[in-house]
Amino acid sequence: MQSPTISHWSAVKRILRYLKGSLHDGLFLRPMSDSSLIAFSDVGWISNLDDSRSQHGFALFYGGNLISWFSRKQKVVARSRTEAEYRALALATTKLIWVQ
C-alpha cells in the first residue's frame, strides 16, 4: 500500500476485468423447506507423483443449495489414504461448524 509497483497495478486491473466480466455469474438458491446442513468430502490420495501430496475437497449444502466448496492439494504428505481422508474430513468439519 505504501509503495505500489507496476505489477501491483496490473494485478488490480486484472481483478477489475474479472469482476466486470462476471457480474451476472452467481449461485441459484431455491427455496427449500429443509434447512439442514450437509457436507461431502473426498480425497485423491497422491494425485501428483512429483510431490506425493493428495488433492482434497468438500462441498457444503444448505437445504439442497450449494453454499460453499473447496478443492486444493493438502499441505502435508499423507502416509496412507486413510490419513488423507481424515485430514480432508477435519477440514470439512471445521467449515461446517463455522457455518453453523
Rank of each mutant, 00 (worst) to 15 (best):
Q2P: 07
S3E: 14
S3F: 10
S3A: 12
T5R: 15
S7V: 14
H8Q: 13
H8Y: 09
W9N: 09
S10T: 14
S10Y: 07
A11F: 05
A11Y: 00
A11H: 02
A11V: 07
K13P: 12
K13N: 11
R14Y: 12
I15M: 13
I15K: 03
L16M: 15
Y18T: 06
G21E: 01
S22D: 05
L23K: 12
L23M: 12
H24C: 06
D25C: 11
G26N: 07
G26K: 06
F28H: 05
P31D: 06
P31M: 08
P31V: 07
P31C: 10
P31W: 02
M32Q: 10
M32D: 10
S35D: 11
S36A: 14
S36M: 13
S41Y: 01
G44Q: 08
W45I: 03
S47D: 12
N48V: 09
N48Y: 07
D51S: 13
S52A: 13
S54E: 06
H56T: 04
G57M: 05
G63N: 06
N65D: 08
N65H: 03
L66Q: 02
L66G: 07
L66H: 02
S68N: 12
W69A: 05
F70T: 01
S71F: 01
K73Y: 08
Q74H: 04
Q74L: 10
Q74G: 10
K75S: 10
K75Q: 12
V76A: 15
V77A: 09
V77T: 15
A78D: 07
R79D: 05
S80G: 10
R81V: 04
E85Y: 01
E85W: 01
E85K: 00
R87Q: 12
R87P: 04
A88V: 01
A90Q: 02
L91F: 01
T94W: 03
T94C: 13
T94H: 09
K95N: 09
K95P: 03
K95W: 02
K95I: 06
L96C: 07
L96Y: 00
W98T: 04
V99L: 11
V99I: 14
Q100K: 14
